[in-house]
Structures are given as C-alpha cells and as structure tokens.
C-alpha cells in the first residue's frame, strides 16, 4: 500500500518543527534572561534613586514607591509581550512535532503569536507613553508613532489574518482527512 499523503505531510512538518523548536526555545530563554536582567537593572537603579531621595531627607510616599515599581513593569511590558509570542511560537512547533498538524487548536497558537505582537506594538505606541505621563501626574495621552512598533503591529495583524485562513483551511483538511480515512 502507498503511504498516506496526509500522514507523510504531517511527518515532514514534524521533522521541520523538530529542527526549528530548539532555536525558538533558545531565543525564548534568552529573551526571559534579557527581560529579567532589564527589570533587575532598572530595579536596582530605581531603588538607588529612591534611596537618594530618602537620603536627602525627603520622606518617601507610598505613591512614589509604587510609581517607581510601575515604571519598571511598564518599561519591560513590550518585551514581556514579545517574549510570550516566542513562547506561543515554540508551543506551536511542539504541537507540529507531535504530529498535530490538522487541529484548529494548533492554528489558534499562530493567532496567539499575532496577538502578542499586536499587544507589544500597542504597549510601545500608546499604553506605555500614556501611563508614564499619568504616573508623572502630567495627564493627557501620548502616542509614540515610531516605525518599529507600527511595523510590528502590522505584522501581528497579518499573522492573525493568516491564522484565521489557516484555521479555515485546516477545518477543510480535517474533513477531507476523515473522508480519506474511510477509504481502505
């Protein structure tokens, strides 16, 4: 009997995913280390700044301490969102490695990658600058329209559209596969 073309396609994709996944996982670990380092470094700098304020005799308010903490989290937020995109990407490859090529839940992980990219973009363009203004007590809104986050958001949106198309194609492929499996 000749090999089932759908199974051999899944096997080929699984091989490819097996080769790629360690690289993506490595990038994810590297990103986690970089983000943690950034938070720690900012944290140390922030603590130093607060201690200097304290040494000058100014009494530190709860709002100042919370403000310093929130600024650190805000600065790291886009990087955290992008790191989660890498996590979803490696999860996607892990599913492909297991041969789960024809499931819509696998395609949904591509959607998650796109969403994480759009979130990172929104954080960089609007949320971080605006909340920073609020923390400084200067109110209003600010948008940092720079090329990198805008392109990142565009790519994220494209990925979401691609994943929806992929999901529809996989639905059709799943139906075809179940039909095909009923032929001996």
């Amino acid at each position: 009997m000749s090999p089932d073309p759908l199974s051999s396609a899944a096997a080929r994709v699984a091989d490819e995913a097996k080769r790629l996944r360690p690289w993506v996982y490595g990038l994810f670990v590297l990103s986690v280390v970089l983000v943690a380092t950034e938070i720690a470094t900012d944290g140390i700098a922030g603590t130093r700044h607060l201690r200097e304020l304290h040494d000058t005799g100014d009494k530190l308010s709860f709002a100042q301490v919370m403000g310093a903490f929130l600024r650190q989290v805000l600065r790291a937020a886009p990087a955290i969102a992008l790191t989660s995109a890498l996590w979803y990407a490696q999860n996607y490859l892990a599913r492909l490695e297991k041969g789960e090529l024809w499931t819509t839940s696998t395609a949904a992980l591509v959607d998650e990658v796109g969403r994480a990219m759009v979130t990172a973009s929104a954080l960089m363009v609007a949320i971080v600058p605006t909340v920073s203004l609020w923390l400084d007590g200067r109110g209003a809104f600010q948008f940092d329209l720079e090329a990198t986050p805008v392109v990142l958001g565009g790519l994220g949106l494209a990925l979401i559209v691609v994943s929806r198309g992929l999901r529809a194609a996989l639905d059709a492929a799943g139906t075809l596969k179940s039909d095909h499996d009923q032929f001996v």
């Binding site: 009997m1 000749s2 039909d179 009923q182 032929f183 001996v184």
Partner: peptide
C-alpha cells in the same frame, strides 16, 4: 463499513 475501496486494495 467503509466509504470506498482503492483500486490498489
């Protein structure tokens, strides 16, 4: 209980 038989089979 099958939908079809391949000529190969």
């Amino acid at each position: 209980k099958v939908k079809g038989v391949r000529f190969e089979t």
